[in-house]
């Protein structure tokens, strides 16, 4: 276990350094993200101004907080894992990783953590500055809120990582992941509430979302931070871990079977 943790740490560090090598790109990314966040804030300000009351239970201040939290969490989650996995299958590099004494999944996790930390910095700074400018009142964040938030974000992270592995393993079958990734992004952004808070969705759809783990990705952490009690909160913790274990089992079985039959041509 200690060996794996060291490996993850080294991979994370490598990914972080690799991403931060290009300083000009880092600065431009931060500026671009700031610009995008500002536009989103004004878009929602206009939508809130056009409505008579709160939108899906959120007032303008909470809506801005929701947008900033989503913009902060999105780059933190390991959404690029499937693309990296699929790329290795496509160009044959997967053979090198399968030969290594440490499982490729740990390498992918380390890489995702490193990239996530870097992206958190480039998004976190702008989000913090904008929150000081646009958020009129702050929720009361206690130690227990922080602990709960941490637990939920870790759970969602585990779910997204395993979900990404399952998508990545499909590349053995499709050889290319462009279309699959597009499908994943569409499903995730809609069901997780990346575009709109899930509470704006019709009741019939919310009933389905209650038994799916996607609400834990953005909605539940945002609600915990803002101190909004949600019907999703308690159940979602169980559901997200249940789905994580089911997907992990599927991934384990499928990847084990497929790597037994993999044929790598020289190059």
């Amino acid at each position: 276990m200690r060996r794996i943790l060291t490996y993850i740490r080294v991979e994370a560090k490598l990914a972080f350094i690799s991403k931060s090598t290009y300083r000009a790109a880092t600065i431009l990314s931060a500026l671009t993200n700031t610009f995008l966040m500002i536009i989103y804030i004004y878009l929602w300000k206009a939508i809130c101004a056009s409505s008579d009351g709160a939108l899906g239970g959120y007032d303008l201040n909470e809506m801005i907080l929701y947008i900033l939290i989503v913009k902060l969490l999105k780059p933190l989650y390991p959404f690029g894992v499937s693309q990296l996995y699929g790329g290795r299958v496509k160009n044959g590099d997967i053979a090198n990783y399968l030969l290594k004494p440490v499982r490729m999944e740990w390498q992918l996790l380390g890489n995702a953590i490193g990239k996530g930390c870097y992206d958190l910095l480039t998004n976190g700074g702008p989000a913090l500055i904008l929150s000081l400018l646009f958020v009129s009142s702050w929720p009361r964040v206690t130690a227990s809120t922080f602990f709960l938030l941490f637990a939920y974000v870790i759970s969602a992270y585990a779910f997204v990582f395993v979900f990404e592995l399952c998508i990545g393993v499909i590349s053995y079958y499709t050889s290319n992941l462009w279309g699959v990734n597009k499908l994943k992004r569409s499903v995730m952004s809609f069901f997780a509430g990346e575009l709109l808070p899930l509470t704006l969705y019709p009741q019939a759809l919310l009933k389905i979302l209650r038994i799916l783990p996607f609400a834990s990705v953005y909605l539940v952490p945002s609600n915990i931070f803002m101190g909004i009690s949600s019907e999703f909160t308690l159940v979602s913790f169980i559901i997200v871990w249940l789905f994580t274990f089911v997907l992990l089992t599927f991934y384990g079985m499928f990847s084990h079977k497929i790597t037994k039959n993999i044929m790598v041509y020289g190059g």
Binding site: S175, N176, V180, K182, L183, K184, L195
Partner: peptide, 20 residues
């Protein structure tokens, strides 16, 4: 044509994306 299965996924994704 080589990645025909992925293309089908792409088309389905595109439809879902715009319905969403």
């Amino acid at each position: 044509e080589i990645y025909d299965k992925d293309f089908i996924f792409g088309v389905v994704a595109m439809i879902i994306e715009y319905i969403v």
